[in-house]
Every structure is written in C-alpha cells, then in structure tokens.
Amino acid sequence: MNKIIFITGGAYQGKLEYAKEKYKIDDKDIAEPDENGYINDEELKKKCINNFNLIIKHASDKSEDITEICDDILKKHEGSDVVIIMNDVGSGIVPMEKSERVYRENVGRAGCYIAKRADVVVRVSCGCGMAIKE
C-alpha cells in the first residue's frame, strides 16, 4: 500500500533533512519548483516534492483551483509513496497585498486538504519531527 507523507513546519526547520533521513530519499528523488513555483509534470513524479507552498503560490497567482492541484499531484503518485514538504506560512500578520493574502490562505487550505488524505503528517521544528498523524 502506497503512502502519502506530509511534512510541514516553518522555514529552515530541517524539514528536508528530516525527510531525507527518515524516508531514505536521495537528492535525485527530490522535485524542486523554481522560485516562481513552476515545476514540470515529469519532475512532479519524483518521490519527494519540496517547497510545495511555492507550487501553491504559482497556482494562486494563476487563480487555479487548489484542490485540483493537490489531486493532480496525489494522482501522479498512485501506487508509489510520496513525500510532500511544505512551509507553514500562515502564522504571521495578514499581508497588505491581496495576492500574498490569497497565497497564504491557499497554503492553509492545501495543507488541510493534503493532511486529510495523508497517511502520515509530521511537523518539524528545530530539526525534530513530531508525527501528528499516523
């Protein structure tokens, strides 16, 4: 049975390192969107998707449906494990800029959507992973 593993936490808390060690991920298995959040379909098939929040940013800027983006990624991994890593960006002041507000809220929505479907959810803080759903 393939597993959906969702790793969240603030920026620079050691999420990727945790994932690499815990789930035996090589650098070649990591899909990384560019700074604008663009990533091609082939990359998305890799076992580990890092900075998923940037993919949500890209989708938000293009007013794309967030649940469709999530479903699409999960569908690409039917039959294989996937590790999705996302920065938690929703615990600050509400941004002045509309696009930043939409992005921030969509990251929350995407997080809830993925967490609900995930087999394992881990929150990483200071390099320590805490499984909050298993």
Partner: peptide, 8 residues
C-alpha cells in the same frame, strides 16, 4: 483553539 491562517 489556535493555529495559522486557514488551518482548520
């Protein structure tokens, strides 16, 4: 109950 934006 606390949490970030749109965190359920």
């Amino acid at each position: 109950i606390t949490g970030g934006s749109k965190s359920g």
